[in-house]
Design a protein around this nucleic acid. Structure first.
Lengths: 351, 351
DNA sequence: CAGCGTGACTGAAGCGCTTCAGAAAGTCCA
DNA sequence: TGGACTTTCTGAAGCGCTTCAGTCACGCTG
């Protein structure tokens, strides 16, 4: 099979005996030519095996690629084992899809985000960054290219559109709930939040590189500190379920054991539930656990998880709308935040 | 802020006083010019705010986009709630990433795959189809464009690279295991396998549109039929956890209740475990359950799941290698299959 | 019948880059 | 010292498409 050169617009044009522009119009502006001629063009195209304008060439001419670069902090499997990401991205995709935009995934590496070079050579009209660490090099590349940018759950940057959630408030709600239940010994469980993931106890005053971690921590502490309750902070070593479990065991092994655990995500909270189960610690009798996100698995666990609900689908949808507006040339919209609320289920009880 | 036209290669060239080709070489073939000049070029580029060759223009000139279109059967959230997909895609990404390829996600719609138009306009060098229904229109579009294609868990098509697993054998192993444990009343639990998802009992002799479902069913039945055991087949209505649960309840509500359930994925098996738990049916005492895939959650459940292991990461890696070979111009490699094996854990026992 | 609006189609100028066959200028060795 | 190489850089031809300013012919109006 000699792989003949794919036919081009010109081939179709000369086959029909019209100009190249006319064939282009047949595909892109049907109103610009008579139905008769258009039919003829399409027929000739089919005969020649011409599948429509080459996407790349079209992109060059229109300076539109139809792709949205999604900058992720981690590998794909790690990223998608987080239901919150899946939901958010799905909602985003649903918004932009009807406008012909697909998602180009740029997974992160060791540096905490996609390599700069990848971003520079990615074919995309706009970038969406999802919970990248502060100062990730990928963000500089986006800027260098002059690509519009939407950030999700990240600090607000000048000239950048942003959507997030009321992290601090949510954390405060969670903490207040536990305080009101009479708890005095607290543990806070964070995902890996330092660039070099080691995990373990987090010394007071250290600063996370992730915006949401920082904010939630501030929310928890803001509520707890006035009560003079005891607080320990533990950080998971990585993003895997295994490292979450390890961290959970460490937290439950502290003496005196906290009676209430504030987890920065449902994933972490579920790991705590699993660990507590294995250790024979009764939830909520001996231990109260609060999650964050209210992702679907939160309601399936036993006991079902008390958590902070944020509307992840709405967050994704908003991100999608920001993308569309930026792409339409609107000026950078003001940052948006989805509201949070406390959802009390079965994993919390009186101290 | 007047958004000045982005600088181009030419701008840099004339700023330095060299030809356009030299600037191009400075980026793509450093050996083609002296280090001194290259440094000068890069410096001028930085000064002008030139972030490197425009990806689209480069693609047009090289006829390489650096993107791999991933054709999915479902929405993103549905797709990524399946750990098997995440793992496979992650492994694939890791293989192709070092070669500069990113994944362009084309989620499926109602038609059971991405719309044909999306495929025709997607900027990609090659397509990877993951478990699409037979005859999905997206596949025709791929062919029409003359894009190379790698299919995963799909029937072999002429001129297409394929990787799958030993579905039929795996299913047979699972069934044999249960037969040997003395079971006589079987239930088979399939994911939604008809184009119009209704769910419910599956009449004997009906044909699934998904290759793996078909093969696994054949494997189960091939082992069970000679034993004259009773077999009922149930299909989930959709891909969500909810519909899996609904199907599980339906299956457990049959009278007489099957004592052994063969599930076509771990996800389905876990749903059965959850349903059994709620109904107070003891596993493995009153009910044996076997999954398929051996995805990570299979070993976390209680009881841990007996399942058919397939090396998902290997499958993804092989898919990635097929992609690279096709992209390198190799002729279509012969189809590959990852082996399967029975992993006996705690969810199966004597009848 | 002059004048004009309209529908249908075309010519040509890009979009920004890669690449290949040279040209120019050194370098080396006999 | 001169021919054979090398190294370094350039000119120009694409890559395949979109788009805009027209051209042309036609029918309509007053």
């Amino acid at each position: 099979m000699t792989r003949r050169r794919r036919p081009t617009l010109d081939d179709v044009a000369s086959a029909v005996g019209v100009s190249r522009a006319t064939v282009s119009n047949a595909y892109n502006r049907p109103d610009q030519l008579s139905d008769r001629l258009r039919g003829e063009v399409l027929r000739a195209a089919a005969e020649l095996g011409y599948a429509g304008p080459d996407p790349t060439a079209r992109s060059l001419a229109t300076s539109r690629t139809g792709a949205i670069a999604v900058l992720l902090d981690t590998s794909l499997s790690a990223a998608f084992s987080d239901p919150a990401l899946s939901l958010t991205l799905d909602a985003l995709a649903r918004v932009v899809d009807p406008h012909g935009h697909a998602l180009l995934l740029l997974p992160g590496g060791a540096s905490g985000g996609p390599p700069a070079a990848r971003v520079l050579t990615a074919q995309a009209d706009i970038a969406v960054a999802y919970s990248l660490a502060d100062g990730a090099p990928a963000l500089d590349s986006v800027r260098a290219r002059g690509l519009p940018l939407v950030v999700v759950d990240q600090p607000l940057l000048p000239g950048v559109a942003r959507v997030g959630c009321q992290d601090r408030l949510g954390a405060a709600l969670a903490a207040r709930h536990l305080v009101e239940l009479g708890h005095r010994r607290f543990g806070i469980f964070a995902a890996s939040s330092r660039i070099t993931p080691g995990g373990g106890p987090v010394p007071a005053g250290s600063t996370a590189v992730f915006h949401d971690t920082r904010e939630r921590l501030a929310g928890y502490l803001g509520e707890l500190e006035p009560t003079s309750a005891s607080v320990v902070v533990e950080e998971a070593a990585g993003l895997s379920v295994e490292s979450a479990l390890t961290g959970a065991f460490a937290l439950l092994g502290r003496t005196p054991r906290p009676t209430a655990l504030l987890c920065m995500s449902d994933q972490l909270a579920l790991a705590v539930l699993a660990a507590a189960g294995q250790l024979g610690i009764g939830v909520p009798d001996e231990l109260s656990v609060v999650g964050f996100d209210d992702s679907p698995p939160a309601s399936w666990s036993s006991p079902p998880l008390t958590t902070i609900r944020q509307d992840l689908a709405a967050k994704g949808r908003i991100a999608g709308e920001l993308v569309l507006r930026l792409l339409a040339g609107d000026s950078v919209p003001s940052p948006a935040e989805v509201p949070v609320s406390l959802v009390v289920r079965g994993s919390t009880g009186p101290a």
